[in-house]
Amino acid sequence: MSNQILKPVDSSKIHPLLAHHTAHLGADRDDIRGAIDRLIHNLINIEDKDGKFLLRLDDGRVLDTKGWHGFEWTHGVGLYGVYKVWELTGDPKAWDIMTSWFEARFKEGMPSRNINTVAPFLTLAYLFDRTGDRRYLPYIDRWAEWVYNEMPRTEEGGFQHIVYNSVNNQQLWDDTLMMSVLPLAKFGLLLNRPHYVEEAKRQFLVHIKYLADRKTGLWFHGWTFDGRHNFANALWARGNSWVTIVIPEFIELLNLPEGDAFRQHLVSTLEAQVKALAQFQSPSGLWPTLLDDPTSYDEAAASAGFAYGILKAVRKGYISKDYEALGVKAALAVRKHINDAGELTQVSFGTPVFNTLQEYKDIPLTSMPFGQAMALLTMGELLVRFI
């Protein structure tokens, strides 16, 4: 008996309810899986060959934020992308990449604590969940204690976005939700400390209050209580994409039930953002790095984050299925920017909060671990649809 071959047919010839469930995607399962493998290979082999993107601190430390062997938010997001691939596929190579990265960092010693260096511990918490490896627990416990008890706070108790080279006094950034707030919620569940979870919820509310733009539904990159303003009022794409990623992750992680008031608030916040994103998507399927400025360059990492968050939120039933086409268009555009070497192209380098919009437009493009990871999230969400 010959093998059955399922091929998409002319959609006009069959009722939508009877169509094959992947016919509308315009994507090929084997191509997506191949892209995932190449993305991971590129992720762990990225190098800053000329030192152009090294972070040089006043105390003499030199940090590699681009290569795979540093300890920054870039690596934290990278690890999370690899973990999500492992969760979906069980790929032993993905598991080895994560555990080897942590083993190497444990030998080197821990970095200074800030908003961004918390990010890798989200993946470590998931690894501990899976293995029960007691060596991981002291690291998770100590860093969780620091986030809850010692992390600098702004007025109203928001997490101040302190980073390696700046304390960013009284500043809230939308990046914080991904880098420290989502990890804190996971720590609370893992360590059976519900007050951590409640604090993570409160951080969401504070950040929504000061960063969500009521006029558009999009998010400003930053807010400062020192002068009480949103800096350049930048509706920066990648900052917005952290929100699109983290809201579905947060709802799923906490298993917030339908009817829960906090879940409803998060969903309405996400819906407002996605509705606005539909208006600003470029013809290419990507989004410009300043969402409301079509003269700014299209940025693939943010677009990958949007695609992932939208598609996952649709799949989980958090937002309307009417938005699926928006997410699929973006995901296919991201796929086009994964080259044969596995690099996600058109990715902007790490970006602080700026006081002018032009500074966002001037950020250089380069391959980065977080870009690779955000593409992994997107390709994984497409792959789920073939199951």
Rank of each mutant, 00 (worst) to 15 (best):
R61A: 04
G222W: 07
W86T: 02
A237Y: 06
I247F: 13
E198M: 00
L190K: 03
N192V: 00
V267C: 12
W287Y: 14
A19G: 05
E359R: 05
D174N: 15
G342Y: 12
D31T: 14
L376I: 09
G78L: 04
D292K: 02
A35Q: 15
G380Q: 04
L190T: 13
G259L: 02
T117A: 06
I40N: 09
V347T: 13
K107Q: 14
L190V: 08
L270W: 07
F128P: 01
G67C: 05
T99G: 08
A261M: 08
P294L: 06
T131C: 08
T378K: 05
K7V: 14
G132P: 10
L357Q: 05
A278C: 12
F349L: 06
G239A: 09
L311C: 08
Y136W: 10
A119M: 07
A234P: 06
G51V: 08
L6R: 00
G78A: 06
Y148V: 01
H15N: 12
A119H: 09
K215C: 08
E252G: 09
G305C: 04
T131V: 04
F121W: 14
A23H: 10
N149L: 11
T378M: 00
R56K: 14
F386N: 01
F280R: 01
E258Q: 12
N116I: 00
G350F: 06
E299H: 10
F370A: 03
K7R: 06
W223Y: 15
N168F: 02
E199W: 07
D226W: 00
T89S: 12
H75D: 07
L332S: 05
A94H: 13
Q281E: 09
L25D: 09
G81I: 03
L270D: 11
S348G: 14
G217T: 13
V197D: 12
M374R: 01
G26L: 01
N192E: 15
D59T: 06
D31M: 08
V267A: 11
S282N: 14
I115T: 15
K275W: 09
I14T: 07
T74L: 04
E359T: 10
W101R: 03
T216V: 13
A341K: 14
N116P: 01
P352G: 08
T176D: 03
L191Y: 04
V77H: 07
G157H: 07
F280V: 15
E249H: 11
Q372E: 14
V85H: 14
R228Q: 10
L235G: 11
W236D: 11
F53C: 02
Y83Q: 09
R153W: 02
L25N: 01
S296T: 08
V243H: 04
E145K: 07
K316R: 10
K275Q: 14
H265P: 00
H195E: 15
K336T: 10
L184A: 09
Q4P: 00
L291W: 12
P138N: 03
E155L: 07
E155G: 04
K312Q: 06
L182M: 14
Q264E: 15
A278D: 12
M368C: 03
